[in-house]
């Protein structure tokens, strides 16, 4: 099989920019742990699906071979800059674009100097690919795509990796419950904004840990609606598509609030 490891991580800039705040620091530590596990799984390429990269017309795929620069988060600019240095596996990406187009998921590569890279992709690359060791396949979250299309995109990436004999690590970037605090809080006292959301998040993470994929997938639509999950939890759909029958639970390295919303670092069992 092409997939050697798979992870779910939050898209928020906060663990990266402010790890001295204990809940966010625990997420940062967990992402470092995930990064070590990823390195140990020895992939050729890291596949990053980020809910923070919005597409509206076509499904967009990063096709610029080397991206370097400094990103400033739109909301958390006060905490500094996010430098990035990312290489792209353009061969695998082009294969995925072609395959998606053949399957009727209209897709386009982007290859532009200064194209805005989203915070989630940069966070993933920072923690899971320190020193820009491995190339990425980086694709977007088309706001009009539903669970099924997102799952199909995950599946076709895995298919193309298999065809090209690439070993890949799949990284889905996105949050859990989506209700954040709108007003300033004492960040050291950050918590999940409601008991209901917390209960839902824990229930879903427990299903992941139990390895009960069928129950997990059956609960996802209700979870997405009830806990206003970040982007309808489509990042999980991408994991489902990529892993297919391999989806059989995992380990939760951390579960914490980021300004009231839910965030977890999950390593799936492969």
């Amino acid at each position: 099989m092409a997939i050697v490891s798979a992870f779910l991580i939050p898209a928020s800039a906060l663990p990266c920019m402010k790890p001295d705040n204990p809940p966010w620091g625990r997420l940062a530590d967990a992402m470092e742990t995930a990064g070590a596990a990823l390195a140990e799984s020895k992939p050729d390429t890291i596949v990053v699906y980020s809910t923070g990269w919005f597409a509206v017309l076509d499904q967009l795929w990063q096709m610029r071979p080397h991206l370097q620069g400094i990103h400033v988060d739109h909301n958390w600019h006060e905490f500094g800059d996010l430098p990035f240095d990312i290489r792209i596996d353009t061969e695998l990406t082009q294969a995925a674009i072609d395959s998606a187009n053949e399957k009727g998921i209209k897709s386009k590569g982007v290859d532009y100097d200064q194209f805005p890279i989203d915070t989630g992709t940069i966070v993933a690359s920072h923690f899971l690919n320190p020193n820009n060791r491995l190339p990425l396949l980086n694709t977007s979250n088309n706001l009009y795509h539903d669970w099924e299309i997102t799952r199909d995109i995950g599946a076709l990436v895995a298919e193309q990796a298999e065809r090209l004999r690439r070993k890949i690590s799949v990284v889905a970037v996105g949050g859990l419950s989506g209700s954040f605090f709108r007003h300033g809080i004492d960040i050291s006292e950050d918590r999940i904004s409601s008991v209901e959301d917390d209960t839902w998040n824990k229930k879903i993470l427990a299903l992941i840990e139990a390895g009960d994929s069928e129950a997990l997938l059956a609960e996802c639509p209700d979870y997405a609606a009830a806990a206003k999950v970040d982007m309808g939890f489509k990042h999980m759909a991408f994991v489902q598509g990529a892993l297919g029958k391999q989806l059989s639970g995992g380990k939760v390295h951390a579960y914490e609030p980021v300004y009231g919303a839910g965030a977890a670092v999950v390593e799936f069992s492969i």
């Binding site: 919005f54 909301n75 100097d113 200064q114 709108r182 300033g184």
Partner: peptide
Amino acid sequence: ITEQGHHFLGVKQLSGKSVDPIFP
């Protein structure tokens, strides 16, 4: 888009290259 609060540009001079993420 800012989820926490209404923000105001507060640097005297800002420059760079803006690439539209939807219509690059």
